[in-house]
Design a protein around this nucleic acid. Structure first.
Lengths: 198, 198
DNA sequence: CATATAATATGACGATCATAATGTAAAGAG
DNA sequence: CTCTTTACATTATGATCGTCATATTATATG
């Protein structure tokens, strides 16, 4: 059947959105093309009219997930600035909140998929590496003036790594109280790294 | 055929060792029972004479991987102590070294598998959570006296999370120089968290 | 109104997946 | 020396995997 103009792009976008959520929720290998298309309201056959391979979709879904998250980062920073608060503190508290731990399908793709992506092709790794670099750049830009020099990027990467690892540990732990304590410890440590003098 | 006494236990151990390496190298879902048994020199049929399910093996492989790594942690601490050095600094430098980044199959299972494990059953998550808690305990025991009080465990978890996240980011990045810089930034930040005063 | 076309659906390919029932051969028990 | 047992091999099951060739059908175009 022939659909209205723009229908295909809309469908493609829907598949990418579904994929970006399912990958984060169930992993890349844990997500099949058939189930993915079914969730998008389609059958599996049409997949290759939109993407040349699953890897092709993976790249796009990683970028799409990051694009949405980047908007969240920017919104948090802006909201903090508007109320005269600290942008970095807002990011840390927002990233390491229980709701983020509990809903990986809507959260950071690095925390949800980093090891699996690391085992993939360079194109896929680069899609995530670019996302990580952008998040590190946002962190770096929010560091206090005393840290905004040469080593800002390194410090920013360390803070981001701490946030990623903390979220993962909090997700692994089945002890709820410990999971909460891990999140709190991560928040505190991240802010300490951000506030060091010299 | 009937083998000598103890042959079965030896075979089982070999399968667990192969699995613990393969899981870390290719992921849990990325590792099939058939390939695993072939690498152990067996056919896939006998698998269920040793384990009641793949999940059963996963639990055991995670514990086995951790047991070996824990020995490495202890050895690093002891070596540092023997030469009058700082045990925690030794752990951080050993964990965040390029060889660890480049050989996940012999490395930390948390860094290699945390998000995938977080999506699994509570028994499997607990196997990793116990390992993480033990590593955090070692870190806590090596913190300076000024930090050995109430919040030692929280600080230790944060340091461990930073190490895990750093290793993962270094593995994702395809830019070698950046990957090295990420490792260095992680080492520096981890030691800074460990050395804070008050 | 007829027709070419675009966006899907249908169905099938061979591979591989976890799991399991059954077969087989050799070492230990008698 | 025979027989039972044990450790694994063989073979099979039904599912699901990624991929693709082909069929279908409504719409935009003529």
């Amino acid at each position: 059947m022939r659909y209205e103009k723009g229908h295909k792009e809309q469908t493609r976008k829907r598949v990418v959105d579904v994929a970006s959520a399912r990958f984060r929720a169930k992993g890349i290998e844990g997500t099949g093309v058939a189930g993915l298309m079914a969730e998008a309201g389609l059958t599996h056959g049409g997949f290759y009219a939109h993407f040349k391979s699953k890897d092709d979709l993976v790249r796009e879904a990683l970028s799409a997930a990051h694009a949405r998250n980047r908007a969240g980062w920017a919104a948090e920073v802006k909201a903090a600035r508007d109320r005269g608060g600290d942008g970095l503190e807002a990011i840390v508290r927002w990233y390491l909140r229980p709701a983020h731990r509990d809903r990986p399908e809507a959260g950071c793709s690095v925390a949800a998929l980093a090891p699996e992506v690391a085992r993939n092709d360079p194109e896929i790794r680069d899609a995530m590496a670019r996302a990580a670099d952008e998040m590190a750049a946002i962190i770096a830009s929010e560091l206090p003036p005393s840290l905004s020099g040469e080593r800002a990027r390194e410090t920013a990467y360390a803070i981001f790594a701490l946030m990623v690892g903390t979220l993962q540990l909090a997700r692994v732990t089945t002890d709820h109280a410990l999971s909460e304590a891990i999140l709190e410890a991560g928040r505190e440590a991240a802010l300490r790294l951000a506030r060091r003098e010299t």
